[in-house]
Design a protein around this nucleic acid. Structure first.
Length: 418
RNA sequence: GUGGGUGUAGCUCAGUUGGUAGAGCACUUGGUUGUGGCCCAAGUGGUCGUGGGUUCAAGUCCCAUCACUCACCCCA
């Protein structure tokens, strides 16, 4: 038997209703805030990701699906969407008539990690991005939208964590201070953190190993090293959040795994998914548009882990497939043939109808109708057919009536589509 | 990439110190029930993840391999 690729998954019919529900709720909300949908390719030139996400990140270093195509181009299945979005923004000169542009996009991403709860090699993200807005209001609005979406979806037990990562001006100062502390505590660090120290020392703050936590306990916080502009920006963000009753916690340890982030960063965390605590995350990337060849343009955005959101909601609610309005139990070839014609017309008219196509007993057909939770069953046996009628049974009330088959389609539509 | 757990009928699982497979649900047929939901009876369905090895004999022991899963790591 051929099985699907490791870390990939099928989203089965019983689950898609929930996916659609989330998608509908999200797009309605984002539209109301002035965000428009953009659809992007799932493959890009490898260089785009190397330059935006950062050569030294885990994603670029060892998680991307990269290959050479037949023409010799280096291509990569996108591991995230922001890079493509920025590329598209620049390529189509969307900044020309108005640098302020807002987008959302939904689709699959690919990272070759070890599969785990809430972590797949093909996973889905809902991305929301805003370009060209410098001021702190948009930062608060992003977090507000996330909170609102989760509220509308009925997600419980999540919390917004907020931090600021500063800018290219203030981050080096913090980095130096942190390195000084780490040098002194080198022997307390785990092997991973010793490696990280050279590469990306900020990540040590995020380590969960007890020894490392202890070592960085007295570590300086990024927020204490922000330059005046960054501090001012962050202070206002927090003010706006507080004044508008948007709940959040200041998380001085929050860092990002992608290099392009600056200033405000945030993450929606949950305890419902084991080790995968982040359901959504994002922040500012004020230098990215310029770094990829566009005009200096501030940017901010977030990504929601669609699969993770589905899992949380699936734990909280019972999902069920839509139930047929009508099940036709036909006995005998002749009756089945007629029933088949009726289903064509009824379904075309918008009635959710089902029937048994195999030659099965009435008992088996009633059993199936019951399992499908059909609201009504139309029974057409040999006798009924000879008498030119069918019996319509209401499965809830158990009441049933005879219907003439002369204009059965109109009759059923009248009764059931009301 | 590293570690732990699991892999027996469509589903959930039993299977004792190795002796050539079982239950419940589901499904099929029949009975009963005013034509389904309860009950009764019979039946279909498994090369015990895969490949080696030990043994007279392996679901049961050993090795390898694959898959699933949880955690590390990383991130959404």
């Amino acid at each position: 038997m051929i099985q699907l690729i490791r870390g990939f998954k099928d989203i089965l019919p019983g689950e898609t209703a929930l996916w659609q529900h989330i998608e509908k709720t999200a797009t309605a909300l984002f539209s109301a805030f002035g965000f428009g949908e953009i659809r992007l390719p799932i493959m890009e030139k490898t260089e785009l990701f190397a330059r935006s996400i950062g050569e030294d990140t885990d994603i670029v270093e060892k998680e991307m699906y990269t290959f050479t195509d037949r023409g010799g181009d280096q291509l990569t299945l996108r591991p995230e969407a922001t890079a493509s979005l920025v590329r598209s923004y620049i390529q189509h000169k969307m900044y020309a008539d108005d640098p302020v542009r807002r987008f959302y996009t939904i689709g699959p991403m690919f990272r070759r990690e070890r599969p785990q709860k809430g972590r797949y090699r093909q996973f889905y993200q809902i991305n929301v991005e805003a370009f060209g807005i410098e001021g702190p209001f948009i930062d608060a609005q992003m977090i507000y939208m996330l909170n609102t979406l989760f509220e509308q979806l009925g997600v419980h037990g999540t919390q917004a964590h907020v931090n600021s990562l500063g800018c290219p001006e203030c981050r080096p100062k913090f980095r130096d201070a942190l390195l000084a502390l780490l040098d002194g505590a080198e022997d307390q660090l785990c092997s991973d953190c010793r490696r990280r120290k050279a590469r990306n020392p900020l990540r040590v703050l995020d380590c969960k190993v007890p020894g490392c936590r202890e070592a960085v306990k007295g570590a300086p916080a990024i927020v204490d090293y922000l330059c005046d502009d960054c501090r001012q920006h962050f202070e206002v963000v927090k003010q706006i959040l507080t004044r508008n009753d948007i709940p959040f916690v200041l998380d001085k340890r929050l860092v990002r795994g992608l290099d392009y982030y600056t200033r405000t960063t945030f993450e929606i965390q949950t305890t419902a998914l084991g080790a995968q605590s982040a359901v959504a995350g994002g922040g500012r990337y004020d230098g990215l548009v310029k770094a990829l060849g566009g005009p200096a343009t501030p940017g901010i955005g977030f990504a929601i882990g669609f699969d993770r959101l589905v899992e949380i909601l699936a734990q909280q609610r019972d999902i069920q497939a839509p139930n047929p309005q009508l099940f036709i139990a036909a006995l005998g070839d002749k009756a089945r043939e007629m029933a088949f014609q009726w289903t064509l017309a009824l379904a075309k008219g918008g009635l959710h109808v089902d029937m048994e196509h195999a030659n099965k007993s009435l008992k088996a057909q009633m059993k199936r109708a019951n399992r499908l939770k059909a609201a009504h069953v139309l029974i057409v046996g040999e006798d009924e057919l000879a008498a030119g009628k069918g019996v319509l049974r209401d499965m809830a009330t158990k009441k049933q009536i005879d219907l003439s088959i002369d204009n059965i389609i109109e009759t059923l539509q009248q009764r059931l589509l009301a």
